[in-house]
């Protein structure tokens, strides 16, 4: 194991301490009597629910108000009507209730959670996404799994599997690392004021400050990168040198429109198309702290070559 023994011990101590801590009981066992009425018809649902994540906080001992009815509402009419859907609050696509009504049930407990403070302003609410669209109230679900988001964001799913991608499908970056699905005031519901502030959280080496800034880089990482995935290496929006030529048309390769003759096997090979193209030399494209050299521009930080 690569973590040190000291850290392993620390984790073990924390684990044991956690067990030792929970000796009192704010909530006790499930009110089995209240649940049994529902279980008579919904055995699988109740069984799964008891094993899920909600029972510790919802069911208070002997308190019938905190049972299945806490979320589904009073069940008497539902039972009397022989189980018709319009007599009980349901969740998900087949619910008879509106998305607002469904989410209202969840928010009656969870509104105090800071992460949902901006639910009203977010795009998901506006687009009729309910809590149950993503969350499973009965069965524990891995909310960090990208499939939760991919079912609606099919284009992002395709991008995340492209030649160059963040490790999203590998499980090392989750959608919620960058986005708050419960709503933010930022575009794309990202967890920062703008793209660069978000990217710099992980890519601290790209923050600078630099002596030589590359303005489009500092203004918006997305000028050159596609965050979810790209067919171009390094998540680039376009392959170098053609990406660079989108702004630097007049520089360097101006008189020669680079084509198939300019690769390794071409009749006029050039380092401008080999492999990484411009990046072969201009690697400090995010910024440089080297001095300018007006006596030898090939050694100058001004051109991001060192």
């Amino acid at each position: 194991m690569n973590i040190g023994k000291g850290k392993s011990r620390f984790l073990l101590v924390m684990l044991l301490a956690g067990f030792a801590f929970g000796t009192s009981s704010a909530f006790a066992a499930i009110d089995q009597g209240a649940v049994d009425k529902c279980k008579a018809c919904h055995e699988d649902e109740v069984t799964n629910f008891v094993k899920g994540t909600h029972h510790g906080k919802v069911f208070a001992a002997g308190d019938k108000q905190n049972s299945c009815e806490s979320c589904h509402g009073p069940g008497e009419k539902h039972i009397a009507a022989g189980g018709s859907k319009d007599t009980i609050i349901g969740f998900g696509k087949k619910s008879e209730q509106s998305v607002e009504e469904q989410s209202k049930q969840c928010l009656s407990c969870h509104a105090k959670n800071k992460s949902v403070a901006m639910w009203d302003i977010g795009k998901h609410k506006k687009n009729d996404v309910s809590c149950a669209s993503c969350h499973s109230t009965h069965v524990e679900k891995d909310m960090k799994a990208p499939e939760n988001c991919f079912s609606c964001h099919k284009d992002v799913k395709a991008q995340a599997k492209r030649f160059s991608h963040h490790p999203i499908i590998e499980g090392k970056v989750s959608c919620s690392d960058c986005h708050n699905p419960h709503g933010t005031t930022s575009h794309g519901m990202i967890k920062a004021e703008n793209n660069n502030q978000l990217c710099y959280k992980c890519h601290a080496d790209k923050r600078g400050p630099f002596v030589w800034e590359h303005a489009p880089v500092e203004e918006n990482c997305n000028n050159c990168h596609v965050p979810h995935g790209s067919q171009n290496m390094k998540l680039l929006t376009r392959r170098a040198p053609y990406l660079c030529n989108d702004c630097h048309s007049a520089n360097h390769s101006a008189g020669t429109t680079l084509d198939a003759t300019n690769g390794f096997k071409g009749t006029a090979p050039t380092n401008k198309t080999f492999a990484r193209g411009c990046i072969n030399c201009h690697n400090k494209i995010h910024g440089s702290v080297a001095p300018a050299n007006t006596n030898d521009k090939y050694m100058s930080g001004q051109y991001f070559v060192r």
Partner: peptide, 28 residues
């Protein structure tokens, strides 16, 4: 684990490999 309102979780994946991860979380 849960006892009443208290909850605790520990998850270790790909133990010993270069992409391993460990999370211990809990609370009330």
């Amino acid at each position: 684990g849960e006892v009443g309102a208290y909850h605790l979780g520990f998850d270790a994946s790909r133990i010993g490999l270069k992409d391993q991860s460990y999370v211990l979380d809990g609370g009330s």
